[in-house]
């Protein structure tokens, strides 16, 4: 019988929504246990949020000053120690989990599965590769732990109506000091919803032309209560922060509404939005590949169309309809 250990992602205060998605992935193959491990300097608040996740059978708090900031090299040996007795160790396919889980796997002497999008059973999984141009079905051996990352865009977050017991653990392993956290620089956001969990996203590409012009994108986002995203070209050009990049090597997202403005639709970008509910493309080039996947396409100059759209939607919001 499968027993799953999930490594919680959090910032010391709040549990990241990616953890609730890992729980949903695990629950899909009905294991006998889904325990969530919280590594923190003081994990009380985060553990309480994890305990509320429907489907979780337990929360394990590992409080240690070295866990103040998430560092893969520090967390991995603790997870390896904690993993005894579990058949599966899961983390989210976010930069947190991608950094950490391969290190955990290698410490356990096993391979790792990246980006699980579907579990056909506890040992049989689907994952995308080649920028989402193909889906692979793989089987993991039952005689060793399955270490994997879960593609968060493929799962709904578990509800928070649960009440799992919380326990404390002290780890015996000596922790390395060769890796030290310095700081996090984060400037984008501006109070907008988080790109990875937002139900609406407006993204801008190279067509937006400058970082000043990027305000056109932000205004439309604000009219919709949406998060802001960007193509790689827009990030490379400095119009938007790296944390806004959507795509194969950025964030894979699944909002209900995705509006792409001045983005051509390269395969690397498309793989990041395949699971979006409704995709809208606004581009002046009617041949742009994005139109091939868009549910609604508007061939227009963005500098005219986007402010007009923001105005129309803002109007609608004001009139409450």
């Amino acid at each position: 019988m499968a027993r799953v250990l999930i490594v919680a992602e959090h910032d010391g205060r709040a549990l990241n929504a990616s953890t609730a998605k890992c729980v949903s992935c695990a629950a899909s193959f009905a294991p006998s246990a889904i325990d969530i491990a919280v590594f923190a300097s003081d994990g009380g608040a985060v553990a309480a949020q994890a305990a509320a996740l429907e489907g979780a059978t337990g929360v394990i708090r590992v409080d240690h000053p070295a866990n103040e900031n998430a560092l893969a090299a520090v967390a991995a040996p603790q997870i390896a120690e904690l993993s005894a007795g579990y058949t599966h160790v899961f983390g989210p396919s976010t930069t947190f989990g991608k950094d950490l889980m391969p290190r955990v796997a290698a410490l356990l002497g096993v391979g790792q599965l990246s980006d699980i999008m579907n579990a056909e059973s506890a040992w049989r999984f689907k994952r995308p590769f080649y920028a989402g141009n193909a889906i692979l079905t793989v089987e993991a051996p039952e005689d060793r732990p399955v270490v994997a990352t879960v593609r968060t865009a493929s799962y709904q977050a578990a509800e928070d109506s649960g009440n799992a017991p919380i326990s404390q653990r002290t780890i015996e392993t000596e922790l390395p000091t060769h890796t030290r956290y310095v700081e996090l620089r984060s400037d984008s956001g501006g109070g907008r919803p988080d790109l990875q969990t937002a139900s609406r996203v407006v993204s801008g590409g190279r067509g937006v032309g400058s970082s000043e012009n990027f305000q056109i994108i932000e205004r439309l986002a604000d009219a919709l209560g949406a998060a802001v995203g960007a193509s790689r070209a827009a990030v490379d050009a400095g119009y938007a922060g790296n944390d806004l990049q959507v795509g194969q090597t950025g964030k894979i997202i699944a909002p209900d509404l995705y509006i792409a403005v001045g983005i051509s639709g390269a395969i690397q970008h498309l793989t990041g939005i395949k699971d979006a509910g409704v995709i809208v493309a606004i581009n002046k080039d009617s041949e742009a590949p994005l139109f091939e996947v868009a549910d609604i396409g508007l061939v227009a100059d963005l500098f005219a169309a986007v402010p007009e759209l923001a105005e129309a939607l803002g109007e609608q919001a004001r009139s409450g309809s």
Binding site: A134, V138, L298, A312
Partner: peptide, 27 residues
Amino acid sequence: VQFRVLGIEPPPQRPSGVKVSDVAELV
């Protein structure tokens, strides 16, 4: 070799969409 490949398939295709002619139609 730890993971056994059971199959490779193309991703599901999104159904093709519509083009609108102006912002009013888009809304």
